[in-house]
Simulated scan of single mutants.
Amino acid sequence: MITLSTNQVYPVIWKEDRVLLIDQNKLPTEYTFVEISRSDDMAQAIKTMIVRGAPAIGVAAAYGMYLGAREIETDNRDEFLTRLEQVAQMLRQTRPTAVNLFWAIAQMQKTASQTIGSVDYLKQVMLETAKKINAEDIQTCQAIGDAGLKVLPSKPDKLCLLTHCNAGALATAGYGTALGVVRSAWRAERLARVYADETRPRLQGARLTSWECVQEGIPVTVITDNMAAHCMKQGLIDAVVVGADRIAANGDTANKIGTYSLAIVAKAHNVPFFVAAPLSTIDFELDNGNKIPIEERHPSEIYQIGDTVICPTGVEFYNPAFDVTPAELISAIITEHGAVPPNQLKQFQSN
C-alpha cells in the first residue's frame, strides 16, 4: 500500500482499475492526468513521453504488463504466458535505452511464471507486484537522496548544485534520483540554489525540473545548456548531480544528451560530478558504455518548438536522445545502498 503525501508529485498512480499518468508533455502550463486502462495505451504513453524518466518508465511498464495480462481471456496457463510475452515485447520496443523498462518487464514476467494458481489469481499477484515496484521506487529514491547528502562537498556556506534534464519526482515514482539528492539537501538546509540546464531539445530542465522546484519552494535558476562552463568558471556551481537511464558494469553512464559534455566541463573546473540512480539502472550484463543502445528520436524535436519551426527547409538532422559519460569523469555513483566510485559498482551485483 502506497501512502501518498499531499505535497509531493507522483507521475504514476494506480487508482481503482486504471493508471493515472501526469501528462509531462503539457507541463509546466497544464498539470493534467491521462487515464490508462489498456496495455497498448501505456506503450504509446511511454513512447510519446507522456511518462518519462527511467524509473518512472519502469513503474509504468509494470502496470502496463498487468493491464496486458488483464486483457488476456484464457484459463490456459501456457497460452496466457505466451500472450503475455507479446505484451512484453510491445512494451520493450518503446524506449530502448532505459534499462529500468526491461528490468520491470522481467520482474512482472518472473511473477507470472513462478506464481502457482489459476490465471485469475496470477493476474491478481501481478497487480500486487506492480504496486510493490511502485512503492519500492519511492523508498529507493529517498534512500538515494540521503546517500547523496554524505558525499556532497562540505563548505561553510550552503551549496549550489547544477542538474541536467529532469531526474526528479516526475522521472521516478516520486521524490527523484538526482533531484532527490537536491531535495534532501534542501530539507537538510544545506542547499542555497539549484541551477537547471534547460536541456535541449525537449527542454525537460526548463519545463519539468524548474516546475518541481517551484512546487517545493526550492530556489532555482534556469540556464541554457551552453552556459554551464561559464557558470563553473564564475564559481557558481559546487557540484553537478545528474540521473541515469542505464549504467554499464564499469560505470559508464547513459543519460540525457548533453550529460557527457557537462561532465567534461565539470572535470575541467574541478567540480565534482555525481550520478544518482537506483541499482536497477545498472546493467551488469554490459561491460562498458559502448554497448548501450542509444535511442534516436524524430527530428521535429530539433527543428520545431511548439508550433514554431526554427530551421530552414532542406537541412538534415541528427537527434540522439542520450549520450554516454565515461566512468573516469564521474566522481561517484549514488545508489540506495550508498555512493561509490564507478569502478566499485560490482560490489552491488548480488543485490
Rank of each mutant, 00 (worst) to 15 (best):
A143D: 08
P96C: 04
Q204E: 10
A188K: 08
P342E: 05
Q114N: 12
V220C: 15
I72T: 08
Y175W: 15
I334E: 11
E301W: 12
M108W: 03
W186Y: 15
I264A: 07
A266T: 08
I334Y: 09
Q86N: 12
C213G: 05
Y260F: 15
Q107F: 00
L152N: 00
G117N: 05
N134I: 01
S350G: 00
D157F: 00
T48I: 07
V87K: 04
P28T: 10
T325G: 06
K110S: 13
A112T: 01
V240E: 05
M49P: 03
D287H: 12
T177E: 07
A239F: 12
E71P: 02
V34T: 15
A332S: 15
A327N: 07
A206S: 14
V119C: 08
I310T: 14
A263T: 01
G338R: 08
F33Y: 15
T325K: 03
R190N: 11
N76L: 12
G258M: 11
Q44H: 10
N76E: 15
K233R: 14
N255Y: 11
R246E: 10
E336Y: 06
Q344S: 12
A239V: 10
A60E: 01
T6S: 14
Q344Y: 11
A62G: 14
L262F: 09
T74I: 10
V9S: 03
P219Q: 11
Q109L: 15
